[in-house]
Design a protein around this nucleic acid. Structure first.
Lengths: 352, 352
DNA sequence: CTGAAAGCGCTTACAG
DNA sequence: CTGAAAGCGCTTACAG
């Protein structure tokens, strides 16, 4: 009786190995290993026999052992600025979807927009012997020496959204320029005369793209570029409020704010309302990223769907297809502009 | 020359092992291993010598090898309903902070509030041979058989926020009852006569607690409990809108809505405004979870800070202290109610 | 098609 | 205080 219980507990606790299966089937562990891995040199009969017994015992390969032996762990590291922004968590969802199908696990790190934390995360991931790294740069990351070092060591890397522009690395981005261009053009067509631009740091590629999309739209519609209508800010609500106050000093005053981020756009919006401007009648506001809150504020905020899920999937595919070298291929995804009430000039007049 | 280059490349590519260090120092690999792990039986002199050389070479232990040998991987699995809710991402932040200090890595999975995905995640984590699991139940999880199985196998588990109430497991929760009690009491004191309650599924512990906090507050303030003022909904904006319409049918009408979630509260708020009620003058609305958007909508929404970071830290500490068995200890954290404009009755009268 | 053997890099009784 | 040896569970040339 006691013995029985003891055996049962062992059943529960002890993991079954290929040797257990081999012994039971009176074949070698090598054969079991091959059968389990669908090695073509194994007869169909033994393969099926092995796989059946393995399934019956609920055999699970010890990933540490196989990783150690194979020299790679089937894990990929992911670094995002922040996990709780819907854009990035969607990307992670897309990556996970593709990669877990291919048998990879994810190790997720946050840089919190800090270069030091980014380096730290890289450190951790290399330490964990990941098979590759998928990441988006932190805002602070201007210099790519730490990334080059890894690339030179032959580490597989794929970047998404925020890509080191001077490095020939694989990456997937959205067409930021097109999104900003489309918004700006649309607002001009709706009758807004002087769209302003609240951008992010010019050191960051995506923000440069958004700004140049805005500028090109002004030019191609024959509008004047007014220097005092263009500013840079950190992408916070506070930054947006400040940007609004500053830009509204200028003459002529703008009647639209194309913002490179949703938080800044929301700041602009709140400050505009606070100063008794009507949105969208007097002033239009648009953001970027389609954060969860954007459709639910008053008025709902025009923004850009950056296709995070899609981006994650594509980045993962790129990673899977990637050969030993990064050859600098770029996938560009079309963003979708979501026009909402905050840019809908004179809607009441429409019904006439 | 060529040879030199070859050597250099090897330097970059090949990971250095304890044997390399042993050879260079003319000692055994055992000693190197012990020195690196600060084994007290090693002389200070050799320890320092080894550690110095290891540092100089940038030695990094192969975690797969040590995991395989030790039979555990220094990884803990984390399952949350959803990674992009600020509450849960804060919890993850707290867990990471404590656990990475103790040398653990995190494997993060999302259940998406689905029991099936929760089981799948558990499967994945066991497969990866994690040393333990920290999790919050999915909304769908009513039956705990899958968890009991793991517990019986001796898997270390710590739960946070949504804890299986019939199992004697370690967990950390907030005092949901107290938060709901405090809000309800405060609203009654502010002059709201008939607070209604928009709750979540009664099958879930946290929602039961919030409801009973509401009920107890009514009782202790001598208010009447009106059955038609109490409803259950999924915690979406749509659910909140529907709940508002339903409850407003009843007689007497409520003049306040204590909601068990922020999205539902926002739905209530939007529907109230749409129907030309003034918030907070005619109707007060409060939420739960202090989601990012709550301070920024109009009017700002009273909500409850669930102390995610703190909860994550405490859960991680519990995990680290935990002996082989789950003994069912519960840590209860005090939430903080953040009163905002949405529950601020007759603020204009205040100034008289 | 199958097996015996070596080895991935570490840790840890065992011995001294 | 240190070393030789075994072994964690797998994979994979090598041999047949």
């Amino acid at each position: 009786m006691y013995f029985h219980i003891f055996v049962e507990m062992n059943w529960e606790k002890k993991h079954i190995t290929i040797h257990d299966i081999a012994r039971e089937l009176k074949i070698s562990a090598s054969t079991v290993s091959r059968a389990l891995n669908n090695n073509p040199r194994i007869s169909a009969a033994t393969r099926d026999m092995v796989q059946k017994l393995a399934a019956a015992h609920g055999y699970q390969p010890n990933v540490m052992a196989s990783s150690l032996r194979k020299g790679r762990g089937n894990t990929v590291g992911v670094i995002v600025p922040n996990i709780n922004r819907s854009f990035f968590s969607n990307i992670i969802g897309g990556i996970e979807e593709k990669l877990s199908g291919a048998g990879f696990n994810l190790m997720i790190c946050q840089s919190n927009e800090s270069l030091d934390k980014e380096k730290e995360a890289l450190q951790t991931l290399m330490h964990a012997r990941v098979d590759g790294i998928m990441m988006s740069l932190s805002m602070e990351t201007q210099d790519y020496a730490h990334l080059e070092k890894l690339l030179n060591r032959g580490i597989r890397m794929v970047f998404f959204d925020r890509v080191p522009d001077t490095l020939a690395v694989d990456g997937v981005v959205i067409d930021d320029h097109a999104a900003a261009f489309r918004i700006t053009t649309a607002l001009i067509e709706k009758g807004y005369r002087h769209p302003a631009h609240v951008g992010g740091s010019g050191k960051i590629n995506v923000y440069r793209q958004r700004k140049s999309g805005y500028l090109d739209a002004l030019k191609s519609s024959g509008s004047q570029v007014i220097a005092s209508h263009i500013t840079e800010t950190d992408m916070t609500r506070q930054g947006g409020r400040k940007a609004f106050r500053e830009i509204m000093q200028s003459d002529p005053r703008p009647d639209a704010f194309i913002c490179a981020g949703d938080l800044a756009a929301h700041g602009v919006l709140l400050e505009a309302l606070k100063n008794h401007f009507r949105v969208p009648e007097d002033i239009a506001v648009s953001g970027f990223a389609n954060e969860e809150f954007t459709p639910h504020i008053t008025p709902p905020l025009t923004s850009v769907d950056q296709k995070g899920l899609e981006m994650g999937r594509q980045a993962a595919s790129l990673f899977l297809e990637q050969e030993a070298t990064n050859d600098g291929s770029r996938i560009v995804i079309e963003p979708e502009v979501l026009f909402r009430l905050s840019t809908q000039k004179e809607i009441t007049l429409r019904t006439e």
